[in-house]
């Protein structure tokens, strides 16, 4: 197992201290979400401060632990609206977005990495450039294309197409960078053995590129999983809404139900976190395939 040894001689104590601080900063807002969700209340504050708060009172207000534990927020979120159905919609949309997006990105990135052809540089640039036009003004033109021209309003397919396309540029850039680091010799050997280009791509290159594919898959999944405004605009039936649309019912307008929102956020985040855990080993095993050489 190749490993850097740069910090080998560092004592581990300070490193742990540093990581502990980082973990605290990272996890604190998350714990905050949890305590609001389990407080059974709808308020942002989890502890009422007395009129003249003492240091102890303030310390209490800073600790992310609700005064009273309750799961009522979770049960209300799941039972007052078809939240499970919305989660299902989100899951379907996100999974197919991932499949479509990753497939399209892989093929394109492979071509950009392996073939020399006119328009290659322009093409790569075009993908990057597409990220540069602010997306907030795209709502109306996208509505015209998807709903008016393609007739895909209130359909998951419409969302899948849009999300997959949105995630392609990042995926292509990531994958192309990764493919570049996979030694060409492997493919050349396969060519000599008479393998077709398709076979080389599917059997040799893709398996080697698993880490980068994992990252792009994750990215595509999250793009689809979190998007709100297009889903709310394209879907005209309540049972076609996605989970983020459902979540937004709780904040906005005159009343803000932070408790429901926090509980819903946790429910919505769980699949993504699980996916992260599952893909962990790929995530950290590298974005360059250099390792396979050793």
């Amino acid at each position: 197992m190749p490993r850097s040894r740069i910090s080998e001689e560092f004592p581990h104590g300070p490193l742990h201290a540093m990581l502990a601080v980082a973990v605290l900063v990272t996890i604190y807002p998350v714990l905050w979400v949890f305590s609001i969700a389990f407080s059974g209340k709808q308020s942002l504050a989890i502890a009422d401060l007395p009129p003249t708060p003492t240091a102890g009172d303030r310390l209490r207000a800073v600790v992310p632990w609700p005064e009273k534990l309750s799961v009522s927020n979770f049960t209300s979120v799941m039972s007052d609206q078809p939240f499970a159905r919305w989660m299902l919609n989100s899951a379907l949309v996100a999974i197919f977005t991932t499949l479509l997006g990753v497939f399209l990105a892989c093929t394109a990135a492979y071509a950009f990495s392996r073939f020399k052809f006119p328009g290659r540089r322009v093409g790569m640039m075009a993908f990057l450039v597409s990220q540069m036009f602010p997306g907030t003004l795209m709502l109306i033109p996208l509505y015209i294309i998807i709903v008016q021209l393609l007739g895909l309003g209130s359909s998951r397919i419409g969302l899948i197409i849009v999300y997959a396309t949105t995630s392609i540029p990042f995926s292509v850039w990531m994958l192309k960078g990764y493919f570049d680091t996979i030694p060409k010799e492997l493919e050349e050997a396969a060519v000599i053995e008479g393998a077709s280009a398709g076979k080389i791509f599917w059997r040799i290159v893709l398996p080697l590129a698993k880490p980068a594919v994992a990252i792009t898959a994750l990215f595509s999944f999250m793009t689809a999983w979190n998007e709100f405004i297009l889903a709310a605009t394209f879907m005209d039936k309540e049972n076609m809404y996605t989970a983020p649309v459902g979540l937004r019912f709780f904040v906005g307008g005159f009343s803000q139900q932070w408790g429901y929102f926090a509980a819903g956020s946790i429910i919505v985040s769980i699949p993504v976190v699980l996916l992260f855990l599952y893909l962990q080993k790929y995530l950290v095993s590298g974005l360059t395939a250099g390792g396979v050489k050793g």
């Binding site: 040894r5 560092f10 742990h16 990272t26 979400v33 976190v273």
Partner: peptide, 30 residues
């Protein structure tokens, strides 16, 4: 953080890694 996490034989490394990735996993409007 990456350099620190890359230290060989650092205890609790997988746990740190999972926790530190969390902000990426939460939807950003939340």
């Amino acid at each position: 953080l990456a350099l620190v996490l890359n230290t060989r034989a650092l205890a609790l490394r997988p746990i740190y890694r999972v926790v530190l990735i969390l902000p990426w996993a939460m939807p950003n409007y939340i």
